[in-house]
Amino acid sequence: MLNTQDIRIEDVTRTYGVRGAELHALGPISVTLEPGKTTAIVGPSGCGKSTLLRIMGGLDRPSSGRVLLGGQVAKEGTTGIGVVFQRDLLLDWRNVLDNVLLPAQLQHRDLGQARSRALMLLRELGVGDFAMRQPWELSGGMRQRVAIARALLCDPAFLLMDEPFSALDALTRDQMGVLLQRVQNAGQTTSVLITHSIPEAVFLSDRVLVMSGRPGMILDDIPVDLPRPRPLSLRDEPEFTALTRRIRMHFERTGVLTA
């Protein structure tokens, strides 16, 4: 695990060459994400949220600027990062437990310890009884829980989540939010959550960054000072709705949402 756990995004931009033309997709963005906190990033489709997350994970390179993870430049091959993608991306040829163990195998960690932790995570996420089952035997929500267990297996300093619940139904999403809080290793892991859901962003995060349309830039930086652990009933509280209204207003003003 890396020692210092903040994420510093310094003047990051990303442009793509599309049929000879240059598409400015992102930035410039400069922001520091505090260690041990969860930051949600919301914004309209195509604003570069996922691109930013991939740059943080070393899976894409910025056109300019840089991202520092615990003081080290983010690049491919950096360990200590757990990523949960929009699709669960489980490997059909491995059973559930072997899917969760994949990062430990790739990073040559002690497989005995990894196995114990994998089983513990699966139990906490409510899929402990399915450890020896094949991924295709599981529902979408269960598959995504396995993907979360896989991302958390090596106790990452950074947890990057790219719309992890977007393919799930509303009830399962709520349930996943509660489960995620339970296993997220609060205070130890610096987490980034990309989401389209405003309530989900507020419910799960300590801070919400609102992004503009392409090229994506930060429109607002909203602290979420709600107590933890957060029950689902928190969503009915006035403080919660005030925060969601503040985020929604940005999208109404820019025409992403119509009032």
Partner: peptide
């Protein structure tokens, strides 16, 4: 699947590990 290849890349997997695992 290019997204499956991201899985091993995000875990620091080498080209050889990606060949074997994915």
């Amino acid at each position: 699947d290019p997204e499956l290849l991201l899985v091993t890349r995000s875990m620091g997997g080498t080209t050889w590990q990606t060949l074997r695992a994915i």
